[in-house]
């Protein structure tokens, strides 16, 4: 039977009418069985595979039995990347949504800012700053007026200033006593002043003349002792 399933065998065996009918019957039977087996496999195999996969940790199985490095090394990543339309991928990403999901506080908390700052070349950053441009954009007057405690600053400046000495210097510079004397002075005070000054001049002239006569050298010591404050005196009540 088996040798007659093939045409070459049939030629060798030679066909006979009774066998021909049997061959056709066998072929039909074989085709029917094949179809039936195929239908049953279609029904059974998915179920079996599902059951096998359900009972098997496929990831673990792959990790244990598959050499992933070797597999990956056979993958032409460049070709894969070339085939990927990255702009399209990026366009499909909702960046806002991604950012919203990111907990920036947590990220910032994990950052070692001290280390970052230590690595920062502040001088270089400052050198690149256009301070003039920054100042041009800042309304310094408004900043000072609104942010600076001018009262405290003025108080501090006044505390450091010797206002009395300053006023005395100004008055000395404009000779205020002379202005007052000129505006309110009387003939009597002018006369007294003149007499006193003439007296002083006469004193000096006479002293010089006598000193010259006595062949003295050097000036006279006419500075009298000074007192700083008039004390309360015990005999003032006498």
């Amino acid at each position: 039977m088996r040798c007659c399933d093939h045409r070459s065998s049939r030629r060798r065996c030679g066909r006979r009418p009774p066998l021909a009918a049997l061959t056709r019957s066998g072929e039909a039977r074989r085709e029917a069985l094949a179809a039936e087996v195929e239908a049953r496999l279609d029904a059974v195999v998915p179920v079996v595979v599902d059951e096998v996969l359900r009972r098997t940790d496929l990831t673990d199985l792959v990790l244990r039995h598959v050499d992933l490095d070797r597999v990956v090394s056979t993958v032409d990543v460049d070709a894969v990347v070339e085939r990927v339309d990255l702009p399209a991928v990026v366009q499909r990403v909702d960046v806002d949504q991604v950012v919203e999901r990111v907990d920036l506080d947590a990220v910032a908390a994990r950052l070692d800012l001290d280390a970052v700052a230590a690595r920062l070349d502040v001088d270089a950053v400052a050198a690149r700053l256009d301070v003039d441009a920054v100042l041009d954009r800042v309304d310094l007057t408004a900043v000072v007026l609104h942010r600076v405690d001018l009262h405290a600053i003025v108080q501090a400046v006044l505390a450091r200033l010797d206002l009395v000495a300053l006023a005395a210097e100004v008055i000395d510079g404009v000779d205020l006593p002379e202005i007052i004397r000129e505006s309110t002075g009387s003939m009597a005070s002018d006369t007294v002043r003149g007499v006193r000054m003439q007296g002083i001049a006469a004193d000096e002239a006479l002293s010089r003349a006598v000193d010259r006569l006595l062949l003295r050298r050097g000036d006279r010591t006419t500075q009298a002792p000074e007192h700083q404050r008039e004390p309360k005196r015990a005999d003032s009540s006498r």
Binding site: G199, A202, D203, A224
Partner: peptide, 9 residues
Amino acid sequence: QRRRAGLVT
């Protein structure tokens, strides 16, 4: 001021 006066004055 505060210097001893001379004879004339």
